[in-house]
């Protein structure tokens, strides 16, 4: 996804996102998942595959994940225009690969779809925990926590499982960055490019638009807070 500080602009009559000068990064939610996967690898001997549905430019991101420690990578060569399409393409890989656990981000920080993990779980008929903040696996038994309004819920489930993960499954301080050795090793690791199964998108973006420009802030003097209260009450009608 585009780095969050990127300027968001559109081209082609506002029908396309302007990738010019935009730096692509791993979605922050997926970074938490990748680190958690590394722990499964180190502590429980898991093999970790990273998968991306996207065009050639996303391979840099896959290489980065390999440098962090994933064993192999798969890129499914299709423009990910719609969440259902991505989920269907991933479902094919998940079924063929015999995977036990899929760690996906709760949402992508660009389109914030919150669509792919749930759709994938339903398509392959795996158990599904969304908004996952903690996960422990023993054999095929899984204990997971998910965030709910004002707290958490503890769940018991089993493999095979898809999670939509977020901060908590690991903390910020645990996130890994590639080191030199990792980068060297990543060059030799397999990155397989698969042709898409031909899933069709049934949503398309007709156009983009930006929010209407906001009026200037109304400044209130720190010694005149009555005015602030009056504005919030009479003008904004929020208190």
């Amino acid at each position: 996804m585009p780095d969050t500080t990127s300027k968001i602009n559109f081209t082609n009559n506002d029908t396309e996102f302007d990738k010019n000068g935009v730096q692509f990064v791993i979605n922050p939610y997926d970074e938490f998942c990748l680190t958690r996967a590394m722990w499964f690898k180190e502590k429980q001997g898991a093999t970790v595959t990273v998968v991306n549905v996207g065009s050639l430019e996303t391979e840099t991101t896959l290489r980065k994940a390999l440098a962090i420690g994933a064993d192999d990578a798969i890129r499914i060569n299709i423009n990910p225009t719609d969440g259902f399409l991505v989920a269907k393409e991933l479902a094919a890989v998940v079924k063929d690969g015999g995977y036990d656990l899929v760690l996906a981000g709760k949402e992508s920080a660009d389109y914030n779809g919150q669509m792919v993990p749930g759709m994938l779980a339903a398509l392959v008929d795996f158990n599904f925990v969304n908004g996952c903040v903690e996960i422990e696996v023993e054999g095929t038994d899984v204990t997971a926590k998910r965030e709910i309004d004002g707290g958490t819920e503890t769940l018991s489930t089993s493999l095979p499982l898809v999670i939509g993960g977020q901060k908590g499954i690991v903390e910020e301080k645990d996130l890994r960055i590639p080191n030199m050795r990792g980068i060297m090793m990543a060059r030799k690791k397999p990155l397989q490019v698969l042709e898409a199964k031909g899933s069709e998108a049934s949503t398309s973006i007709a156009s983009f638009e930006k929010p209407a420009p906001k009026g200037a802030v109304k400044l209130v003097d720190a010694d005149n807070l009555d005015e602030l209260i009056s504005l919030l009450h009479n003008e904004a009608k929020v208190i």
Binding site: D110, Y111, N112, F208, K210, P211
Partner: peptide
Amino acid sequence: VKRKAFSNKAFSNTVISA
């Protein structure tokens, strides 16, 4: 329908054909 995109920095007008 109009949907939020890019962390509230824009909207997309999405056509659903299903």
